[in-house]
């Protein structure tokens, strides 16, 4: 691993962490969504650096492209401003949450640190980005792959049914 690799690895890691912190602390949902897009792009770069070229591209297309567009679309559809949600937390609750998050981070870091990881012997990165994944996906994971398509169909139908302003449900409630 050369210096170029290391510098960019830490660059994108720092970008992801800073953008994630900014995302968690923004009051405006649109600003939070844009910071989350920033995290997604930094993670896509990290995926590519770890040898998952196809997943880096899929990350940009699926997460930064599709999912975040849906988020921003919903935020703008609901026309939410900064003051619609009151983040009224007592200091004690905020401190307790921060403590829990910090303890979780410390635990995870400790566990990773204490694991014997032999990263001198790495799997070779195939220049053919798709072939190894496709081999696994369309042979041993074929059933799971097909079930995934059913899941997406169910999700699409479910989303339409839930968000539809139905005659019975919509008028009875509003």
């Amino acid at each position: 691993m050369g210096t170029f690799y290391t510098v960019h690895f830490w660059l994108f890691s720092a970008l992801a962490i800073v953008a994630a912190l900014a995302m968690v602390t923004r009051r405006n949902p649109v600003a939070a969504a844009l910071w989350l897009v920033n995290v997604m792009f930094a993670l896509a770069a990290l995926y590519v650096m770890l040898g998952a070229h196809f997943l880096g591209a899929a990350q940009v297309l699926v997460y930064a492209g599709a999912i975040m567009v849906v988020f921003v679309f919903v935020v703008m559809l609901l026309n939410l401003g900064e003051n619609d949600v009151q983040e009224r937390r007592s200091m004690g609750a905020a401190a307790a949450s921060s403590l829990l998050g910090g303890v979780l981070a410390a635990e995870l870091l400790y566990v990773i640190r204490s694991q014997p990881l032999n990263d001198s012997v790495l799997q070779p990165v195939d220049n053919d980005a798709m072939a190894p994944m496709a081999n696994s996906l369309f042979t041993e994971n074929l059933v799971a792959f097909e079930v995934t398509s059913v899941l997406l169909l169910v999700a699409v139908i479910g989303a339409v049914v839930l968000a539809k302003r139905g005659k019975v449900a919509g008028e009875a409630r509003t």
């Binding site: 962490i17 968690v24 919903v74």
Partner: peptide, 18 residues
């Protein structure tokens, strides 16, 4: 670290979208 930041957000925020 990213996972912990996500947990922290879930614990502290009140906005359903965030």
């Amino acid at each position: 670290i990213l996972f912990s930041i996500g947990v922290l957000g879930v614990l502290t925020r009140r906005n359903a979208l965030i």
